[in-house]
Design a protein around this nucleic acid. Structure first.
Lengths: 134, 134
DNA sequence: GTCCTTGCAAAGCGTTTGCACAGAA
DNA sequence: TTCTGTGCAAACGCTTTGCAAGGAC
């Protein structure tokens, strides 16, 4: 918890009980959760927690650079720690999202005058579990 | 139109007037359109066209491998030609999506037993127009 | 006739917004 | 008090679904 407060301070986020719980959940579970996954997991610990608060705070975390929203085709947006940078493998069968080492791509692909700020790489295919169950 | 019919046949899509118009629009405009962009552009040419038909057919095109849905954080899903494979640059300021050459990433990043079927790379930053207007 | 396609209308669902209350400084 | 954070309820908007009518074969 002390670590989380430090991280909040470094990113200009004032702590609250709800914020701590939400961030702690994401950092601990590493399951690329949706708002509803966070809400469902935490409402037993914080009975009055509302979905709105989860929405408010994951948006704040994204704005402050603590989280990134993952680009998926699912209806629900899923979130992940912004640091350290890494790429993702999405299983087309079970939908599981796996963290993989950050992939670097060669430069020179962008037209003159464009400035790249960040890169998101999504590998799509079958994970080993789903291949074994085929 | 004859070309489109050939392409449809090669992908197992039976032609209809609506399907031809929709695919022709995407192929010609190259603007990574949303369903609504397609619908708005075509309803003058086909007065009875419905949004449902556009939804039905872009989904069919995706299923048959003619289109891919782009991974974006916008509310509306946007679509692009599946072939030839290429990557995308998304301007964080104006939202414009640019096609860029397909970026290849080095192998060995995926755990054993995983099979990669395709890769989607999104570069995010500022396009030259937005940089000049800063 | 059968089967596929179209398209209107309504429902579904994740997300956002309005607003009032609570809590900290 | 003043400002920030919380959370209920309602609204919003993209998408999906139900279903009936039209068209091809």
């Amino acid at each position: 918890m002390v670590e989380i407060k430090k991280k909040f301070k470094a990113h200009g986020v004032t702590p609250s009980i709800q914020r701590m719980l939400i961030y702690q959940y994401i950092e601990k579970e590493r399951n690329h959760p949706s708002v509803d996954m966070i809400y469902s997991a935490l409402k037993s610990k914080a009975a009055t927690l509302s979905r709105t608060t989860v929405y408010n705070n994951v948006s704040l975390f994204v704005e402050k650079g603590l989280l990134i929203p993952l680009l998926t085709k699912e209806a629900e947006t899923r979130y992940d720690l912004a640091e350290p940078a890494h790429s993702h493998f999405v299983c087309l069968k079970c939908g599981q999202i796996y963290d993989i080492p950050s992939m670097r791509c060669q430069s020179g692909c962008v037209p003159d005058g464009f400035r790249v700020q960040n890169t998101q790489v999504y590998l799509q295919g079958l994970c080993s579990r789903c291949r074994n169950n085929e």
